[in-house]
Design a protein around this nucleic acid. Sequence first.
DNA 1: ATCCAGGAACTGT
DNA 2: ACAGTTCATGGA
Length: 306
Amino acid sequence: MKWNMVENSIELYPAKPFSFSECLLFLNRSNLENLHRVIDGVLYKLLNIGEKNVLIKITESPSSLVIDFPMGECPSDTGEKVIQFVEEWLGLNQDMAGFYTMAAHDPLLSPLIDKYTGLRIIGIPDLFEALVWAVIGQQINLTFAYTLKKRLVELCGERVEVEGLQHWTFPSYEKVANLTVEDFRNMQFTGRKAETILHIARMMHRGELLKESLLLENDVQAIHHQLTSIKGVGPWTAEYVMMKSLQLPNAFPVSDVGLHNAIKDRMNLPKKPTVNEIKEMAEVWEGWKAYATFYLWRSLYDETAL
DNA sequence: ATCCAGGAACTGT
DNA sequence: ACAGTTCATGGA
């Protein structure tokens, strides 16, 4: 992707179609979210890069996205990492052309790509954060999931105040690895989720689980197997992480309840479809199942009928 | 109060 | 292989 550094700001030029307002809508869906902030069309996020916390501020200009650094100058040698993060976070490096061509011929997806043109899959570039968020989200409603995440972040994430606004980073696996099951129980995590998250944190702390290593696997089945071999990580969590953190366009959390509800609503079905029925209708999505899923999720929080 | 939630592991057949 | 049970709690 093209980019340009001008004085103390970076301009990015995502390939079209790209919708910044769709990014903001997704990122602003919960008022319990504290890992970024959306204020009047401006997106803030605190990044931890090379032991330093860097606040980025993203705005849209007519022809580009602009990243500014409200804490001062962009520290030298972090510019590249900031760009890479934002690309993965907002999906700027995603090539949508094949998906749109496929979706245009699918009666379920075609209204969605028309209405949400430019929507990208919003990612969670940090593998640890993606895994923890997925484990938290297992079998509980989203509001409670956000509450639990907020408690964990405020317990051991890092906080910075800039211009009167608080900003948080997600806790590092080093810090989480030093927590106990009781710490999690006090935050109303279940014992199982506490064990799973602690296990993941300790694995990553020991260097036994690395995003770069997963991405070097030669096929997605190997990645899926490596993730599901972690106790507490099942098929849904593995696919979710492959979609949101590893950016695999064909990742498919087929058992996802939200996906089931979206398909039911979109097709006016009397009840939710079975997993096998969904697998059948997803055959034509081959190669793009992650995008199909994300566009269907998007339809769930649409206030206006399609 | 009742059902369900962006599941997973375990148990029994 | 497949179905039922348990975990645990909050939200609507």
